[in-house]
């Protein structure tokens, strides 16, 4: 089990993953950045970005995805997302109140740069959700490896 996990799946899965994983990642970024215009937003986009890394981990084994994104860096990114969200909330105190939309009239409604702090909050939420889910996934996988090594 351990050896199998290190080497990943067959060459067909690896090739298809190499072709598609970038597109999945890009789609997640698109969903996050257009969250205030189209369906989607930070929650769905964050889970899609986490899914692209889960796809890498399942296809190529733990070592390849650990090179890009280790367990320590997931903790750092999740904490960064939480602090960014809270900092945006606290910055609103300067202009009116907690979670005040202090950037609001900044563009035509319907354009990409509009809606004040909502895109920034989408990015913060997506970092938090994606990194948290990927940390959960890595933890469950790593313990399985630990158990099979013990046997």
């Amino acid at each position: 089990m351990s050896k199998e996990h290190d080497h990943g799946m067959t060459i067909i899965v690896k090739t298809v993953t190499r072709l598609t994983v970038g597109l999945i990642f890009l789609y997640g970024i698109y969903i996050i950045l257009h969250g205030h215009l189209t369906p989607g937003g930070g929650f769905a986009g964050g889970v899609i970005v986490a899914l692209s890394f889960i796809n890498l981990d399942l296809a190529f084994g733990g070592k390849v995805s650990a090179k890009i994104f280790s367990r320590g860096s997931t903790s750092v990114i999740e904490a960064f997302g939480g602090i960014m969200f809270l900092a945006l909330a606290l910055l609103g105190l300067r202009w009116g109140g907690f979670f005040d939309n202090f950037l609001h009239p900044d563009g035509e409604p319907g354009m990409l740069i509009s809606a004040g702090i909502i895109p920034l909050e989408n990015i913060a939420i997506s970092l938090k959700v994606g990194a948290g889910l990927f940390a959960i996934f890595l933890t469950l996988i790593t313990l399985q490896k630990f158990e099979s090594e013990k046997k």
């Binding site: 969250g35 369906p39 907690f98 939309n101 409604p109 319907g110 909502i118 909050e121 989408n122």
Partner: peptide
């Protein structure tokens, strides 16, 4: 649209009007 500038009303609710809920979710 006047209050937040977001075309997606659900996004406007979870990140502007009811952002406390999202903070609790986080």
């Amino acid at each position: 649209i006047e209050g937040t500038g977001a075309m997606n009303v659900v996004s406007a609710i979870i990140l502007d009007y009811r952002a406390y809920d999202t903070l609790g979710e986080a």
